[in-house]
Design a protein around this nucleic acid. Structure first.
Length: 272
DNA sequence: ACATTGACCTGGGAGC
DNA sequence: TGCTCCCAGGTCAATG
């Protein structure tokens, strides 16, 4: 479900309800997520206050008194704020109870998500430590991406989806950014000029920023924490638009499988 | 070090 | 209706 804009939308949705609140306890109905939810998670977290609600890549980080709670939504995860006695459905795996009577509920059909605790600085955590720059930060530049692409033979699409290179760019926004930059998804990363890499960097920033503004992209099950869909789906130019006319030249959008993911592009506007 | 593929899991839709 | 197959927003681990 979520790429960076959807995770950021979720962060903004939950922050007002959990910031400066005390967590009373955590209920785990099914600990079998991508990694097991620690069986003592409730003892680890109970009684602590939430000091900050951050996002790093697609991780949500709740900074507490004695450490941080790391939450990843995987492909199908979502978080909702509910009243404490709300009935739990089939895929409502974890409830984080607040002392104010609300609860933060983690729902994840496919269970690719994760809820983990770390007592150390999150930057040192093995899942965080290797991550590349935030795409919307000043550290993500044409120079940075160009230097990383040097000598690399991977096609540009899987390259920008690699979180070691830059974080937060999933399948939807990789397709969209490449369209905006006029770059064919199969272009060899190391063969792109600095100018074209610069266009790509700007396209990634633009598409992610606009998607956050729109509250993310709702395709199937993504919902903001208030239950409303995100509205970026109507601004998609290529993703999911196979055989439909390109908005610039009317050429039918093409689709193919690349690194086991669906890629979409305009054969006229996007060159290798 | 880098590139590629498989694996995890559930549900929805297409086709027969 | 029901079965089988393919697909889905992520990303780590294993393999060359």
């Amino acid at each position: 479900m979520p790429e960076l804009p959807e995770v950021e939308t979720t962060r903004r949705g939950i922050e007002p309800y959990i910031l400066k609140q005390l967590i009373s306890h955590i209920t785990v109905r099914n600990p079998n997520l991508r990694w097991p939810v620690p069986d003592n998670i409730s003892q680890l977290v109970a009684g602590q206050k939430v000091h900050q609600v951050e996002r790093r890549a697609k991780y949500l980080i709740l900074k507490m008194d004695k450490g941080s709670l790391l939450i990843h939504l995987g492909m199908s995860g979502n978080l909702r704020i509910l009243e404490k006695d709300s009935a739990a459905g089939k895929h409502d795996h974890v409830d984080i109870h607040l002392e104010n009577g609300k609860l933060l509920r983690f729902n994840d059909t496919r269970r690719f998500g994760a809820i983990l605790w770390t007592a150390d600085a999150v930057e040192q955590h093995p899942l965080i430590q290797h991550l590349g720059p935030e795409p919307l930060s000043l550290t993500f530049t044409a120079d940075d991406l160009f230097n990383k692409a040097k000598g690399r033979s991977v096609p540009i699409k899987p390259f920008i989806m690699n979180a070691d290179i830059v974080v937060g760019v999933g399948n939807i926004y990789a397709n969209e950014a490449l369209f905006l930059a006029g770059i064919h998804p199969e272009t060899i990363s190391g063969k792109l000029s600095k100018v074209r890499i610069g266009k790509l960097v700007e396209a990634i920033k633009q598409v992610l920023a606009k998607a956050i503004e729109a509250g993310g992209t709702t395709l199937r099950d993504f919902r903001k924490t208030d239950g409303q869909p995100g509205y970026f789906a109507q601004e998609l130019n290529v993703y999911g638009r196979e055989n439909q006319a390109c908005i610039h030249c009317q050429t039918p959008i093409k689709s193919f499988r690349q690194a086991q993911r669906a890629s979409y592009y305009c054969p006229h506007c996007q060159k290798k």
